[in-house]
Nucleic acid binder design. Structure first.
Lengths: 153, 153
DNA sequence: CCGTATCCATTCCGATACTG
DNA sequence: CAGTATCGGAATGGATACGG
C-alpha cells in the first residue's frame, strides 16, 4: 500500500497487523461493515472520502482476505463487500479503540455512541485480559517474549 | 496530522481514536514504549524510520497527551519519552492487534513473539468481552446505539 | 448506481547533511 | 546523542469528469 518499510515479515504480530490495517481508512471501513454497511456508496456517504481512495482501500482489503465481494442481495448487477472470518476477527480491535476513545476523547458533556448488549441494551464491560488460569491481568503483569521462551500450556 | 477530513468531532469513539493514533507509526512507537524504550535513538533504531518523521510523531504524541517528556534518568542532558495514563490506556488496543496478527498473519511454521503472564510465562488468553452481568459476548450479541438509547446500569 | 480515470495540492517518508 | 533542515519521489486525499 504505502511504499514504506514493510513490516510484514516482522516477528511482532502488532507490526504485521498494522502493516495490513494500520492506515487511516481501513479500520473505519471495517467498522462500517460491522454496522451493516456493504455497498460502495454506503461507505462513501458514511465516511466522506474520495471515491478513488475508497476503491483502492476496498481492493486491498479484499486482497488481504478481510473483505470479500458477493453478488448484491437485491438483485442489482453489482457487488457487495462483506467481512470474511478474518475480517470479523478484528472485532476486539474495534472494541478496544472504542473503549479508549470513550475514556479519553470525550468531554463530560459529550455523548459517544455506545456498544451495548443486544439483549439488555446495557453497555458492555471493558475488555478483560486474563491469564491461562483465568486471573485478571494488567499490563505490568505481562511480558513479551520470543516464542521459544514461553511455557507451553 | 494529516490534512484529512477530521474525525475529532465524530460521535463515534472509534473515529476519534483513529483520528489520534490511526496512522502508520504512532502505535508502533507506543508499542516500543510498552517494551521499555524511551529514547529517541532507541525508537529510531527499533523502527527504522526517518528521524524527521520520528520527531514529528513524537511531537504529536506529546501534544495529544499520550507521551510526556521527562528529564533523562541517566543524568544526560536530554529528555525521555514515557507513556502518560492516557498512553498506557492503549494497552488493550495493542493486545487486540497482537492477537489478531497472531491468528491471521502467521503461517504454521512461523513463530510470533508472545504476550505471557509474567509470573508463569504462559501465554495469556484471548481478550474477552463481557456484558454488565458478566456473560461472554461475541459481536453478534452486541449493538451500537446512540447514548440516549442505552439502558443505564 | 458503481465505480474508473485524471488533475492537483498536500503530506508522508527516506536519505542526507548539519548543529549543539 | 538528539534532534533540525532540506530535498525529492511517492502516495494520499479531494474534486471532478467520464463510462458501464
Amino acid at each position: 500500500m504505502v511504499k514504506r518499510t514493510s513490516l510484514e515479515d516482522a516477528p511482532c504480530p502488532i507490526a504485521r497487523s498494522l502493516d495490513m490495517i494500520g492506515d487511516w481508512w481501513s479500520l473505519m471501513i471495517i467498522r462500517d461493515c460491522f454496522l451493516g454497511r456493504r455497498r460502495f456508496s454506503e461507505f462513501q456517504k458514511s465516511l466522506g472520502l474520495a471515491k478513488n481512495i475508497l476503491a483502492a482501500r476496498l481492493r486491498t482489503l479484499v486482497a488481504s482476505g478481510i473483505l470479500e465481494m458477493t453478488p448484491a442481495s437485491d438483485g442489482s448487477a453489482y457487488q457487495e463487500y462483506v467481512l470474511t472470518p478474518k475480517g470479523r476477527g478484528t472485532f476486539p480491535i474495534l472494541v478496544a479503540l472504542r473503549q479508549w476513545g470513550e475514556e479519553f476523547s470525550f468531554e463530560p458533556g459529550e455523548v459517544p455512541t455506545l456498544l451495548v448488549d443486544r439483549k439488555t441494551h446495557r453497555p458492555v464491560r471493558k475488555l478483560e485480559l486474563r491469564s491461562a488460569s483465568g486471573r485478571l491481568l494488567n499490563q505490568p503483569d505481562t511480558e513479551v517474549v520470543p516464542s521459544a521462551e514461553a511455557q507451553r500450556p
